[in-house]
Amino acid sequence: MKPEREFGLVEILDRILNKGVILNADLIITVAGVPLIGVSLRAAVSSVETMLDYGMMDAFDQKTREWYKENYSTADIPLAEGEEIIRRTFGSLWYSQGIISSWRPGFWYLTNKRLILWRRVPEGALLDMPLDEIEALRVKTEVDFGNEREEINLLFREATVRIRVSDVADFRGAIKKAVTAKPLS
């Protein structure tokens, strides 16, 4: 068989954009790697890895990170004067109202004054509980999809607040220590 000389456009683009000599010298001001041509054209011919290899996605990555920085503020929650964060951990809170019942995820903040479940986007407290209003604290084992799982139960304003965190023992200990000012039943 004789080699075909009919190449597809994509095959030509692939070679010229992804192969061929690329210089690596101070004289060179530009190489095919940086986004010199429309991203969609490059995307048509090269894999994302290649784009990453050539630093193609840097700008995109930068933008994404900035967006995250703005929207998922890493700044901690608003604190009152003299309030200090003792623990911060990812977890969830059982929410049940009418036919809705689910675990709402967020960051648990334990301060020397409050226990707060903070949601990043949209920003806000899903639960804001002054420590001196916690009436009781216990650890309970619940069955969840066939697995036993420990959760922290608090009695707060005559209702049970169910809390899940990854390190139950540590978080319980920390809460207990924080509320020692007020005797727990």
Binding site: R15, I16, L17, N18, K19, G20, V21, I22, L23, A25, L27, I28, I29, T30, V31, A32, L36, I37
Partner: peptide
């Protein structure tokens, strides 16, 4: 063959030097 968009800064002498 060179890849697309490889440009040497300078004139003919720069290229000759390279």
């Amino acid at each position: 063959p060179f890849s697309f968009d490889v440009i040497i800064k300078g004139g003919n002498e720069a290229v000759r030097g390279w």
